[in-house]
Design a protein around this nucleic acid. Sequence first.
DNA 1: CACGCGTGTGAACGGCGTTCACATTAGCGC
DNA 2: GCGCTAATGTGAACGCCGTTCACACGCGTG
Lengths: 213, 213
Amino acid sequence: MARSGYFHGDLRRALLDAGLEAARSDGPEGVSVRELARVAGVAPSAVYRHFEGHDELLFELALRAQSMVADAMETELALVPSGDRRAWADGAIAATGIGYIRFAWQEPGLFRLAFRTRGDLEAAHDERGRGACGRTPYEQLELALDALVEVGELTEQERAGAEALAWSAVHGFAVLTVEGPLRSLDAQTREAFAVRIVEMVRLGLAQCAGTRA
Amino acid sequence: MARSGYFHGDLRRALLDAGLEAARSDGPEGVSVRELARVAGVAPSAVYRHFEGHDELLFELALRAQSMVADAMETELALVPSGDRRAWADGAIAATGIGYIRFAWQEPGLFRLAFRTRGDLEAAHDERGRGACGRTPYEQLELALDALVEVGELTEQERAGAEALAWSAVHGFAVLTVEGPLRSLDAQTREAFAVRIVEMVRLGLAQCAGTRA
DNA sequence: CACGCGTGTGAACGGCGTTCACATTAGCGC
DNA sequence: GCGCTAATGTGAACGCCGTTCACACGCGTG
């Protein structure tokens, strides 16, 4: 299956690799069918043997990027001490949030690829968005919410709202700092704000439970 | 200045109007130089007599859309009873947030145009993004923060963080419901979540002050 | 060995943003 | 009123893009 002059060998993988590399430096806008073909040393039309078109190509790349996000979250998650389950849940929410945000800072191009608006955000629920940790970014947060439900801190009915709350704050902050007006914040301030964001989420979740009691 | 066969009369305005209309139905992706020229009944090259290029055209349109957001926020803001200044501040934060989110729901195309990633989000601070109410969307929120500072609920140092907090949650929720995984939420649930978002923001702001005391 | 099917090619189509030489005309000084 | 200038619109062209299609190649199977 080696490169035999005419056949490439593993063009699909080569294209995906080139795509991630392009997105890493230039964001999703930098991913074009023709450019990837050029990098892979192949005619543009060859791309269509492996992908339906530009949209599917970007979708597939977004899945890969999302799995990287999930793994970044996993890294933070692993640092949470696993003694008390209730305390772990709080720590896990903060950790997944921080992991998400940090990934956005470290790999803005890939982050924008992963959570590119208009279609790819829903890919976050796609099976194929799982990382090496075996979970999608969303499932990483759900892990923490599961713990809260388990401990009785949250009811099943409140889960959906709690999830929306957490994602909104974290994703919003990530977006604003990566490509928004908060882009020019220095690293230290940014970190401090990020901590406050996840603390706000914790308060918000507690309040979800509070309105019930 | 009427249409005289050769000259258009007010091409710039016609192009902006066509652009807003295109964005309203198809989002910012639907705004192309050639398409707007077509609608205005003019050659594509004529557009360049009035705009530097596609980017500036979209930027200018984003400013218009943002001024509409500011006015939508103003509408909600006007409903806040102006008795106690402290209570007003709380109400104002919720109102501006809700106004922002509601605009996103009512005009998803224009919302995406206004806060399109990669460049336009910073236009939110541009003078020309002011609406009929005389303020930009950001300044609408700042109005509420001003009140909090005035009442002594927030220090000047805490303001930047407080603003980031509020925008992150509100913008994040708007994005997720307009073009994200929360898109399919029914109107009632959406409203309930929106209320919880702004309540979370209120808690977050209170906590900003709380860490100081 | 032959054949089929998966894979890559090359040329082409229409659309895009953009440029440039050129045509038209409004407004202004005389 | 006349002619000049600067502003505005034209048309053709360039190079990019995504996409399609008839065709060429060669690996694996029968």
